[in-house]
């Protein structure tokens, strides 16, 4: 990795997800590759969910950020396979999520099975740390989140679900 590529990766740390603004695209693990030839840059990203409306905004913000820094032309391309997984989220990203009040994804890949009425995963409340929590809905305010409630502090919270 040369100096320019390093610099671009660090600039991408500033590009955040408009729906979860504490996370950068690096934290999310959606940047798959950065290619540089002189000032021309190609950033390869992978979508989180097929219909995620944030992806268009993210692609635009990446372009703007790099153009402002004097790079160009900037191309943002998309790759679908291998499909994005929450396992690509950085540990730092998970910590930021928790601090923001969103429970980070647990390593248990619950999406892989179709078992019905599955045992609620033990998700720690991001506020009080209690595991005495209950799922309210598998689909939360955005595609990537589920809605939970803490039975101890009684607060509802979002869980960034495994994918």
């Amino acid at each position: 990795m040369n100096a320019t590529t390093d610099k671009i990766w660090s600039l991408l740390e500033e590009v955040t997800d408009p729906e979860v603004p504490v996370l950068s695209v690096i934290d999310l693990g959606i940047v798959r590759d950065v290619k540089v030839v002189d000032k021309a840059v190609e950033v390869v990203i992978t979508p989180t969910y097929s219909g995620c409306p944030a992806m268009d905004v993210i692609a635009m913000t990446i372009r703007m950020t790099l153009l402002q820094e004097g790079y160009g032309p900037v191309k943002v391309s998309t790759v679908l396979s291998p499909a994005w997984t929450t396992e690509w989220m950085t540990e730092r990203g998970k910590e930021k999520l928790r601090a923001f009040g969103i429970a980070p994804p647990t390593p248990l890949q619950q999406v892989c099975h179709t078992q019905l009425f599955h045992r609620d995963e033990a998700i720690a409340c991001p506020r009080c740390g209690s595991y005495h929590t209950r799922m309210i809905s598998e689909f939360g305010s955005t595609a990537c989140k589920a809605l939970y409630r803490c039975e101890d502090c009684r607060e509802p919270f979002d869980y960034f679900k495994c994918h």
Partner: peptide, 14 residues
């Protein structure tokens, strides 16, 4: 596309 979408459909099916 199928590999990506399958993860979503798994949720829909459940």
């Amino acid at each position: 596309i199928a590999e990506k979408a399958l993860k979503e459909v798994t949720y829909h099916l459940r």
